[in-house]
Amino acid sequence: DEETLERIAKELKEKGWTLIVNGKLITDAREALKWLLEEEERR
């Protein structure tokens, strides 16, 4: 759910983690959240 996604995005940002999505590096939590939401919609 959205709360979980926001928590994940926040944790990613705090830890300075990066996500690699389709070979693209995502360092911004907002971008990561946007991607996660798009993935949820596809299901």
Rank of each mutant, 00 (worst) to 15 (best):
D1T: 12
D1W: 15
D1Y: 15
D1L: 15
D1K: 07
D1A: 13
D1S: 05
D1Q: 06
D1H: 13
D1I: 15
D1M: 15
E2T: 11
E2L: 11
E2W: 15
E2M: 14
E2Q: 09
E2F: 13
E2S: 11
E2Y: 13
E2C: 15
E2P: 10
E2A: 10
E2R: 09
E3Q: 08
E3D: 13
E3R: 10
E3K: 12
E3S: 11
E3Y: 11
E3I: 14
E3N: 11
E3W: 13
E3V: 14
E3A: 14
E3H: 09
T4F: 13
T4H: 06
T4C: 15
T4R: 13
T4S: 07
T4L: 14
T4I: 13
T4Q: 06
T4W: 15
T4D: 09
T4Y: 10
L5F: 09
L5H: 01
L5S: 03
L5G: 02
L5P: 01
L5I: 08
L5E: 04
L5Q: 02
E6R: 11
E6D: 10
E6H: 11
E6P: 03
E6W: 08
E6S: 09
E6Y: 05
E6G: 09
E6I: 12
E6N: 09
R7G: 04
R7F: 05
R7L: 10
R7E: 04
R7Q: 06
R7K: 09
R7I: 05
R7T: 04
R7D: 03
R7A: 08
R7C: 15
I8E: 02
I8Y: 03
I8D: 01
I8A: 05
I8N: 01
I8P: 00
I8V: 02
I8L: 10
I8Q: 01
I8C: 15
I8W: 10
I8S: 02
I8F: 04
A9Y: 14
A9W: 14
A9C: 15
A9I: 14
A9P: 01
A9L: 14
A9F: 15
A9T: 05
A9D: 03
A9S: 07
A9M: 14
K10E: 07
K10S: 09
K10I: 06
K10P: 01
K10D: 02
K10M: 06
K10F: 01
K10A: 07
K10Q: 10
E11T: 09
E11R: 09
E11W: 15
E11M: 12
E11A: 14
E11N: 09
E11H: 12
E11K: 13
E11C: 15
E11Q: 12
L12Q: 01
L12F: 08
L12V: 08
L12S: 03
L12M: 08
L12T: 03
L12Y: 04
L12A: 05
L12I: 10
L12R: 01
L12G: 02
K13A: 13
K13V: 13
K13M: 14
K13D: 05
K13R: 10
K13T: 12
K13N: 11
K13Y: 10
K13F: 14
E14F: 05
E14H: 02
E14S: 03
E14I: 04
E14K: 05
E14M: 02
E14W: 05
E14A: 04
E14G: 03
K15H: 12
K15G: 15
K15R: 08
K15Y: 14
K15S: 06
K15F: 13
K15N: 11
K15I: 11
K15Q: 07
K15E: 10
G16Y: 12
G16L: 15
G16E: 06
G16D: 07
G16I: 14
G16N: 10
G16A: 09
W17I: 11
W17P: 05
W17E: 02
W17R: 01
W17G: 11
W17Q: 02
W17S: 02
W17C: 15
W17A: 02
W17M: 06
T18V: 14
T18P: 12
T18F: 14
T18N: 08
T18S: 10
T18Q: 11
T18G: 12
T18W: 13
L19N: 04
L19G: 06
L19I: 13
L19D: 07
L19F: 08
L19S: 08
L19M: 07
L19K: 05
L19R: 02
L19E: 04
I20F: 07
I20M: 06
I20V: 09
I20D: 02
I20H: 00
I20W: 05
I20Q: 01
I20P: 00
I20G: 00
V21Y: 05
V21N: 01
V21G: 01
V21F: 10
V21H: 01
V21K: 02
V21I: 13
V21Q: 00
N22C: 15
N22W: 13
N22V: 15
N22F: 14
N22P: 09
N22A: 11
N22E: 10
N22L: 14
N22S: 05
N22R: 02
N22M: 14
G23M: 07
G23L: 13
G23P: 04
G23N: 04
G23R: 03
G23K: 01
G23H: 00
K24I: 13
K24P: 02
K24H: 10
K24M: 09
K24N: 05
K24D: 03
K24Y: 09
K24L: 10
L25E: 08
L25T: 06
L25H: 04
L25I: 10
L25D: 01
L25Y: 06
L25F: 09
I26E: 00
I26Q: 00
I26K: 00
I26M: 07
I26D: 00
I26R: 00
I26H: 01
I26W: 10
T27D: 08
T27E: 09
T27G: 06
T27Q: 09
T27K: 09
T27Y: 11
T27R: 12
T27M: 08
T27F: 13
T27H: 13
T27I: 13
T27S: 06
D28K: 12
D28A: 14
D28C: 15
D28V: 12
D28P: 01
D28F: 14
D28I: 14
D28Y: 02
D28W: 15
D28R: 13
D28M: 13
D28L: 14
A29K: 02
A29I: 14
A29Q: 02
A29P: 12
A29V: 14
R30K: 11
R30P: 02
R30Y: 14
R30H: 07
R30S: 05
R30F: 14
R30G: 04
R30V: 12
R30N: 10
R30I: 15
R30D: 04
E31V: 06
E31Q: 08
E31C: 03
E31S: 06
E31G: 03
E31N: 10
E31M: 03
E31A: 05
E31Y: 01
E31K: 09
A32G: 02
A32M: 13
A32R: 00
A32D: 00
A32P: 00
A32Q: 04
A32S: 01
A32I: 14
A32E: 02
A32W: 13
A32Y: 13
L33E: 00
L33S: 00
L33D: 00
L33K: 00
L33Q: 00
L33A: 07
L33I: 06
L33R: 00
L33N: 00
K34N: 05
K34R: 11
K34E: 10
K34D: 05
K34C: 14
K34W: 06
W35P: 00
W35N: 02
W35K: 06
W35C: 14
W35G: 02
W35F: 10
W35V: 08
W35R: 13
W35L: 08
W35I: 07
L36P: 00
L36R: 00
L36K: 00
L36N: 00
L36C: 15
L36H: 00
L36A: 00
L36Q: 00
L36T: 00
L37P: 00
L37Q: 09
L37W: 08
L37H: 03
L37M: 07
L37K: 07
L37Y: 05
L37F: 12
L37V: 09
L37N: 03
L37G: 03
E38I: 06
E38Y: 10
E38S: 05
E38V: 05
E38N: 04
E38F: 11
E39V: 08
E39Y: 14
E39N: 08
E39R: 04
E39S: 04
E39P: 02
E40L: 15
E40R: 08
E40Y: 15
E40C: 15
E40D: 07
E40V: 14
E40I: 15
E41K: 11
E41T: 09
E41Q: 12
E41C: 14
E41S: 09
E41M: 11
E41W: 14
E41Y: 08
E41D: 06
R42N: 04
R42T: 04
R42S: 07
R42H: 05
R42L: 08
R42I: 07
R42Q: 07
R42E: 01
R42M: 06
R43Q: 09
R43C: 15
R43N: 09
R43L: 10
R43F: 10
R43S: 10
R43D: 06
R43G: 04
R43V: 07
